[in-house]
Structures are given as C-alpha cells and as structure tokens.
Design a protein around this nucleic acid. Structure first.
Lengths: 135, 135
DNA sequence: GTAGGGATTGCCATCATGGGAAGGTCAAGG
DNA sequence: CCTTGACCTTCCCATGATGGCAATCCCTAC
C-alpha cells in the first residue's frame, strides 16, 4: 500500500504521515524499488489510532505516550487512564476559560442596544480602566 | 513615555507593541532624537483596549475592527454588537467541540478500571475500527 | 570611565498543517 | 515511441502570536 492509499484508509493526509515519520511518531516504512513508502494494514491502524487521539484533543506528546502504551502488551490500564484524566482536566480548564469569556460577552451583548447610536457597553468595557486581571 | 513604560502601563509586552506596529494594528509612534518610540496616554489606552479584546478571545482581525469602531465616533453600536455576537457563537462552537471530547473521554475514563492490568477501554476506543467521523 | 539598564533592529523557534515547485515513476492509450 | 495524468519523492515557505537571543546604541549614576 503506498502513501496515498494509506492516507485514504487512515484519514491522515500524506503530508501528515510524512511529518509523523519525520518527528519519529511512526517509524520509517520500507521503500519499494522506486523509493515509494509502503505501508501495512498495521501501519494504517496506527495512523487511525493517532487520528482518533488527535480528534479527541490529545497533544502530540500525549498521543505518542498512548501509542507506546497501546503497543505495550504489559501496560497497566492505570497509565492510560492517568493520561486521559489529565487531558480531561486540561480540556475542562480551557472550557472554563472560554466559558468565562462567553459569560462576560453575553452580558455585554445583552446590555448593548445594537442600534445605530454609537453608545456601546461592549466598547465601554474594552476601553475601561478597570483591572480586568483581578480575578 | 518610552516603550518599557507603555508596556508596564498597558500590560502588553514591548515585543508585542512593536509587533502590533509592524502589522499596522497601531500606527507608528513618533521617535525621540535617540530613535526611541514615544507613546502618549492615548496610545496606552489603545494598547489596553487591544489587550482586553485579546483576553476576551477576539481574533486579531476582530480586534482591529473593534478598535476602528471605538475610534469612530459615528459608529453604530449594532456593528460592535454583531462582532461580539459572532465571537460568542465561535466560542460556543469551540466549547461544544471540547465538551464533546470531554464527554467521550469521561465516559471512557469511567469505564477504565485503572489498575495494573492491560485491558483498557480507552485504548480500545482509540484503536477501534468504528467510523468516528460519523456525526 | 565604567557599569547597568533600557532601547533599537533582526533573526530564529515554536506547532501542526497546508501549499507548491521541481523532478522521478508508472500505467494506459494514441 | 511518446504523451498524458496520476502518483510519488524532497525541499522550501507560510501560518499566528509570542518569546528568546545577539549586537549595538543611548543615557544616567557612580
């Protein structure tokens, strides 16, 4: 299977497959006589695994760790779980930050008349001298 | 006021102030005889405005638009409101995506025994042939 | 004069991803 | 045999907001 087929089968672009190889996330595949990379179905499974991990928001280092645990038959599920728990915590932190933004903005939007007059509480907030850092 | 003072007064790093100048977000300030940039309190207010907009997650183009509206005394608050509404929608979309990730992950974490055995539903999910695209 | 702190510019790096150029390979069909 | 088209290869460039570093200059204080 060449890189195009592996790409279609895994949902990872050929560009990214080469990139993952360059950073050592996947090992370099064998080459055919014409220097084409050749992939096995196992390689494709690995790529799908990576794709799925990335879709779930895992960072590259986390993905690498998960991949290593996946390959390791003597792993402890506790190690996998720890990575996932940490990632959930990270996601929740980011969600909370963005939620705080939307809460503030929704309030301001609610207070803004949104007509053709220039007065605007949104701009007032942005321009305000208040210490927005204080929280 | 030189760039260091403007930085401390606005909460924007000197590096970023120069960067904002280079991309045209703020205009180039006057220079003293020794080629130092010199800023007015009005410039600092603009920087604080930018800082606040960035803290609320507005993109650079949105920030630019908001800044322009702020300077424009004949603006309609509706224009400001539209940008904010769009941004809230963007944030909510991203929050929903991340929420979907956490929901999936929390479920998997819940199902994972997290002991020293290798069996792990988290890895099973990542390795699964299922079409995770289907939604 | 010298030390220190701040300013200037410019270059490099991030991180995951895409775009594109220049050139090799291969199969099908005239 | 030659062309066309669809692959593949490598290499370079760009993103966006930010930090870091280096060389050089300026000013003030001792």
């Amino acid at each position: 299977m060449n890189i195009g087929e592996a790409s279609r089968a895994s949902g990872v672009s050929a560009k990214m497959i080469r990139y993952y190889e360059s950073i050592g996330l996947i090992r370099a595949p064998l080459r055919t006589g014409n220097n084409y990379r050749v992939y096995s179905t196992e390689d494709v499974h690995r790529l799908r695994f990576i794709r799925r991990a990335r879709d779930l928001g895992f960072s590259m280092p986390e993905t690498e760790a998960l991949l290593a645990l996946w390959q390791d038959r003597t792993r402890s599920s506790a190690d996998v779980r720890a990575i996932a728990v940490q990632h959930v915590a990270d996601l929740e932190k980011r969600i909370a930050e963005m939620q705080a933004m939307t809460d503030t903005l929704r309030h301001l939007v609610h207070c803004c008349s949104g007509d053709d007059r220039p007065d605007c509480p949104i701009l007032n907030d942005l321009a305000n001298q208040r210490d927005h850092h204080g929280h």
